[in-house]
Design a protein around this nucleic acid. Structure first.
Lengths: 266, 266
DNA sequence: CTTGACCTTGACGTCGGGTCAGGGTTGCAG
DNA sequence: CTGCAACCCTGACCCGACGTCAAGGTCAAG
């Protein structure tokens, strides 16, 4: 007669595993000797090896019992089922590998390549690191919410970056990072932003909404803007005085205005 | 300001997940409003998306924190590490798929093809189903303990099965399944077994031990023999009287005997 | 007799959350 | 004003397949 340790060693498992199978009802509890030790016969080794054979093939223990008792047809169906699960798990891991390889290649995390190129270009053009990070975070939010919109929207932003006068405006807006709510530069900056939006709106006259942006996302991006720039609230007030409301998706303050401007910045 | 539900929805996760990340220290606990609700800013959405990006790439949560804070070099090393783990898990699943496909094809479980052929041949030759199952279980034990020995040993057994007189002996030994300890057929059967072993031992004179079988395995197989056949104990006694001891690896009873016989049966 | 290796039961930890239970809060409609 | 639904809170248990103590009893050898 075998002790639990001998049984386990014959089957190449741990003692704990054998007891686990007892608790799960996979392996019947054997007789005990007078001191309470479990005593097994050779048949238990066969049972245990059979269980391990299935378990080693990736069969969940909860299904092992049915498989041990199954006829050929049931067995085949169960095997097919388990194979599907294994295949799904493999594919999941493969997708994980691809994603993590992309992460290792990109700037920070989870950004599509266009965005990486964009923030790199910002650095080249002398935008401050803090500003670049804020911009990047905004694009993380956008990519999480509307990944399919990132491409076209990004193309527009990249073009704007290459426009010299617009770039100077952006660089100055970037100084909002440093300036408090009462900074004397703010009113003039608001004037320039308003003038640009005015022109952009006129140019887009009659055109359809280019980027149908979710209102929730716009609100979130505006909130991010306010959180990141100490002067942002003041800037929004100044724009409000000049007839504009919002930031990410800036619009005329009058409710009658139907046309909307393209997003101004993030 | 966002509630936990809004935050979760922006990041595409459940509320429970956000709280889980708080508990794990991955995401800082935000301020509470006067009724105890958590209130988040837009930055929390960015943090959460970053965490999910890593988690979705298969990074264990326990490593997410270090990766979020890692520089490029550390990040690359960690990614490599995680990729290795993913690859190992994929290979594990692939091995599982192969094994389970083999199981679906074979007789019962986990037997190498030679053994499947052997037990099929036994059925063809008229061995009783009970006996065949006992034989198969014995081979499960052998294959679990010494898989590399199964091939050569099996070849010998298959040859024995095709020897007419030997086959008759086997068939009669198989009747042990039915006969009790006092069955009148037993002494004559013991004589025949002893005669065969005598001849086999003489033929193998001077030859080296063909199959170096683990003593523990022999004991286990003998135990399985005794458990399966009610007349087995008596048979062993009768063989003992005739100068032989054991069954699986039967040997002369005298301790001086150096030569050993090939395994007689299972 | 001691020592160390074995056995017993019981309970907690792993990983990433899902799913109650039991109660308080908010916001909107009637 | 009052429902009511939808949200929020904490705390707790659940899954799988065991690993890992803890605290104590048993066995074989020196």
């Amino acid at each position: 007669m075998l002790t639990i340790g001998q049984l386990a060693s014959y089957a190449g498992v741990t003692v704990r595993t054998v007891r686990h199978y007892h608790a799960k009802g996979l392996l019947p509890e054997p007789e005990r000797d007078r001191s309470g030790y479990r005593r097994y016969g050779a048949a238990a080794v066969v049972d245990l090896v059979r269980i391990r054979t299935l378990a080693d093939a990736g069969v969940p223990l909860s299904r092992v019992r049915e498989l041990l008792a199954a006829d050929d047809e049931e067995f085949g169906a169960a095997v097919e089922d388990i194979d599907r699960r294994l295949l799904a798990e493999i594919r999941e891991r493969q997708a994980h590998r691809e994603r993590i390889a992309q992460l290792a290649a990109g700037d920070s995390l989870a950004l599509p390549p266009e965005v990486v190129a964009y923030v790199d270009r910002m650095r080249e053009l002398g935008f401050g690191e803090r500003l670049v990070e804020i911009e990047r975070d905004s694009w993380i939010l956008i990519a999480a919410q509307m990944p399919e919109q990132v491409g076209p929207w990004m193309a527009m932003k990249q073009a704007q970056l290459e426009d010299e006068s617009l770039r100077r405006l952006y660089l100055d807006v970037g100084d909002l990072v440093d300036c408090g709510p009462d900074d004397p530069r703010l009113p003039a900056l608001a004037d320039r932003v308003a003038a640009f939006i005015e022109a952009a709106t006129a140019a887009a006259e009659g055109a359809e909404e280019e980027h149908p942006v979710n209102d929730d996302l716009v609100a979130l991006l505006d909130a991010a803007f306010v959180e990141s720039f100490p002067g942002a609230v003041r800037m929004l007030e100044l724009l409000e005085q000049r007839g504009w409301t919002g930031w990410t998706n800036i619009r005329r303050r009058t409710p009658a205005a139907g046309a909307s401007a393209p997003p101004a910045g993030c």
